[in-house]
Design a protein around this nucleic acid. Structure first.
Length: 760
DNA sequence: GATAATCCGGTTTTT
DNA sequence: CCGGATTATC
């Protein structure tokens, strides 16, 4: 598979002087235009000037995008490298490239097509020097960023308790999302964050990144903007403006301000900017997306054409009516009504809203319906359970396991985010870039080598004083006797290892080198020693990582890929029910969709309600809209009257969104038909259930040994089975006063105070 | 420096 | 209630 991120290839250089055909040869064969409806076709053919394509869910957006690109290429309006096409995810970029390739062949390879960030890197590597970086700068992940910021906060005596580094980091990121370099952040924006020194901190952070020859994700665009806007280098922007005759943007409702500015600058010359999006599907404001971008497109780009795609080819009329009815409750939309495309003669089955007793019963009901669907011929791969938040998946997983229905949870922890993978990558980074201090710090004492805070401190002090990287500082340090002899020799050995690995960079095939590094550093050994249940899995992940290296031609090349992609390719073609979050489901479609947990506090989420504003609530509503419009044939919504949250029982009201669904496309089904109308009836319903509570069902808590307090009066004896909150089950080996020596089944042997265990 | 006890917070996620 | 992060203790 071609790597969509491998952008620093030696593809053809832009040649502004190349002759460009403007008119298509009359008999040009473009059979793929034929299947389009009138609006779609307009969107494809309106190549000149700014265009906003408002494409509702299921209206053939991807098809329009790819066809439009093909049209531009085939008619000779532009050469591939004169076209800039931007997406949000690597997946989307890859798919788009593949689909275009089927239309125009290998020319698709030459397009400037990728995510904002990938394209940003490609440009930035060329001009890195202008913002004080070398072109081989590294891209930090969130871990690194946070560590860096914490260091600065320590140095600046900013209280991490009062101002969590996490919060400050996300503030800085939001500033970057808005295209604000430190000098441009207004004092009012910073408020009293970090005791009023937030801007100064941001500035330090940027300086530090520069010193490390590193970038964070926000910088990839922010630095581009800086370069573009610098009058001293006006030629650079002018060249790109000249080069990109046509610009195309997918998911425009998700762009942030920095991305908007970047696009606007690049489009300035030819003004052939086509943005495709749907304001009703904007669900990422919390990470900086600015719905305003799409709402004010016509003002921003005077003379813009707006083309609405409203013919939906995905869902039944009943589902469309439900979704439209719901989203109508939002203010401030561009306005757009989905109507059925051609294929549905009948309305289709109504959306079913089902009220249930509790989460467990909800899960049971959902799985029963899934089985019924399966019997009726629906494939499991065409069924999805879409939840608001990750923790909701558990109940469904449990039920699906007990019933033996195959499922997959889409979008758990991604491969490259796992601890062991990041550790391994840190080793590689130090080998490739000895100045990568953050990586060095991550692994200097991993596995434990006896190089603790004291040694690290010494390295830091020296590094600061001399203005060198930690590796260099460490090298100097081992020449002195500042460190204790033990630490000194261990550190010297480690540095020797790194030098040796570096010397092998060109000799050994890189997957082998990677294996060598992990083995010789003792990193694999560390996990082999570890007896915890997940150690095995971690070792397998490491093997997988080394295997994955085969696909790349060098270790540095691989690291570049990883820093951008951070993606987990799931390969498994078996038919399975998908469980995922509503966010994760955007852009996907299924025959049958289950939307559980429609309760106040869950969905809309408590936090959105707490904010109080309509903005947060409207975003939740859009999320519901996204959920509904994933379905082709059938939607099942459910809510429970009682839910256990943090192991506490709470009774809950049906989501307000249920009330907002148009009555004539929805069936409501709950015991005793108590869903007449307003929330009041919902309360009554819950109350009626509550009256039945006592006999209803005893919780399985009985089987769970409860916490401390019920220790036997005569204390524990060797051989007793016990349960510990953290370490699980184990057997008492010895007793020493109130201290117990316990061999835990999973966690190994530990000494524990008796009040922390309970008899099992 | 490593391990145990305590504290705290607890959506959504990509690059 | 759980898990991660921080603190306390040996």
């Amino acid at each position: 598979m071609p790597d969509p991120f491998d952008l620093d290839d030696d593809g053809p250089q832009p040649s502004p002087s190349a002759p460009v055909q403007i008119a298509p040869p009359p008999a040009m064969a473009m059979p793929w235009l034929d299947g389009l409806n009138a609006d779609q076709r307009r969107a494809v053919e309106a190549t000149e000037g700014p265009v906003l394509v408002l494409s509702g869910a299921g209206t053939g957006k991807t098809r329009v995008l790819t066809t439009r690109l093909a049209f531009i290429l085939v008619t000779g309006k532009a050469r591939p490298w004169n076209v800039l096409a931007v997406t949000f995810t690597n997946k989307a970029a890859r798919e788009m490239r593949e689909r275009i390739a089927t239309l125009v062949g290998p020319a698709a390879e030459q397009l400037w097509l990728g995510t904002f960030h990938a394209l940003g890197v490609r440009m930035l590597r060329r001009h890195a020097a202008l913002v004080g970086l070398e072109s081989n700068f590294t891209i930090l992940d969130t871990d690194d960023q946070l560590r860096l910021l914490k260091q600065l906060m320590d140095a600046e005596r900013i209280d991490g308790k009062k101002w969590p580094a996490q919060v400050l980091l996300s503030t800085i990121q939001r500033w970057k999302d808005r295209g604000l370099a430190p000098q441009r952040v207004s004092a009012g924006d910073a408020g009293d964050l970090a005791g009023g020194r937030a801007i100064a901190l941001y500035e330090l952070y940027q300086e530090r990144l520069k010193a490390l020859n590193a970038c964070d994700f926000g910088d990839l665009l922010l630095h581009c903007l800086t370069i573009f806007q610098d009058p001293a280098h006006a030629g650079i922007l002018a060249d790109y403006q000249q080069q990109f005759r046509y610009i195309l943007v997918d998911e425009y409702q998700d762009t942030n301000v920095a991305q908007y500015l970047w696009l606007r600058l690049l489009a300035q010359k030819h003004k052939n900017l086509c943005c495709v999006g749907d304001d009703d599907q904007s669900i990422y404001s919390w990470r900086g997306a600015e719905v305003g971008n799409i709402l004010k497109f016509e003002q921003d780009f005077p003379g813009a054409q707006v083309i609405r795609l409203e013919a939906n080819y995905r869902s039944t009329p009943a589902i469309l009516a439900t979704a439209s009815g719901l989203i109508r409750h939002n203010q401030g939309r561009l306005g757009k009504t989905l109507r059925p495309g051609h294929q549905h003669a009948e309305a289709g089955e109504r959306v079913l809203v089902r009220g249930l007793w509790d989460g467990e019963e909800e899960a049971r009901w959902v799985v029963e319906e899934i089985e019924a669907q399966q019997r009726a011929g629906t494939r499991l791969g065409q069924i999805a359970i879409l939840v608001r938040a990750g923790f909701q998946t558990r109940e469904f997983e449990e039920r699906l396991i007990t019933t033996g229905v195959a499922y997959k949870v889409v979008g758990g922890l991604r491969f490259y985010e796992r601890q062991e993978i990041r550790d391994a990558l840190a080793y590689f980074r130090v080998v490739v870039q000895r100045a990568d201090d953050l990586a060095f710090e991550r692994i200097v004492n991993l596995p434990k080598r006896g190089l603790g805070d004291a040694s690290l401190q010494a390295m830091h002090v020296l590094a600061r004083r001399q203005g060198v990287c930690l590796t260099e500082a460490a090298a100097q340090l081992v020449q002195t006797d500042e460190l204790k002899p033990k630490a000194r020799s261990v550190l010297a050995a480690l540095l020797g290892d790194f030098d040796r690995w570096r010397s092998m960079l060109d000799g050994l095939p890189h997957p082998e080198l990677a294996g060598t590094i992990l083995d010789e550093s003792g990193y694999t050994g560390m996990w082999q020693q570890e007896r915890s249940p997940d150690a095995q899995g971690r070792l397998e992940n490491l093997k997988e990582l080394v295997a994955a290296l085969e696909e790349y031609d060098s270790l540095p090349g691989f690291l570049e890929h990883v820093s951008l992609v951070m993606e987990n390719d799931e390969r498994s073609d078996a038919e399975r029910v998908s469980i995922m979050t509503l966010h994760g489901a955007k852009g996907l479609e299924f025959d049958v969709v289950f939307l559980p947990g429609w309760e106040e506090g869950v969905f809309p989420h408590q936090r959105a309600l707490a904010e109080g504003g309509v903005k947060a609530l409207e975003e939740e509503r859009r999320l519901a809209y996204v959920g509904l419009t994933r379905a082709r044939r059938r939607v099942f919504i459910s809510h429970a009257a009682n839910r256990r949250i943090y192991n506490q029982w709470q009774n809950s009201l049906p989501s307000r969104f249920i009330e907002e669904l148009p009555a004539d496309s929805v069936d409501r089904l709950a015991e005793q038909g108590l869903f007449g109308g307003a929330a009041e009836s919902a309360t009554a319903w819950a109350a009626s259930w509550n009256s039945v509570t006592p006999v209803r069902r005893q919780r399985q808590d009985v089987t769970t040994p409860s916490v401390a307090g019920d220790a036997p009066d005569d204390g524990y004896r060797p051989g007793d089975r016990v349960f510990h909150q953290k370490f699980g089950y184990g057997r008492v080996l010895g007793v020493d006063g109130n201290k117990l020596e316990i061999a835990f089944d999973k966690a190994g042997q530990k000494k524990v105070i008796d009040s922390f265990v309970a008899p099992a």
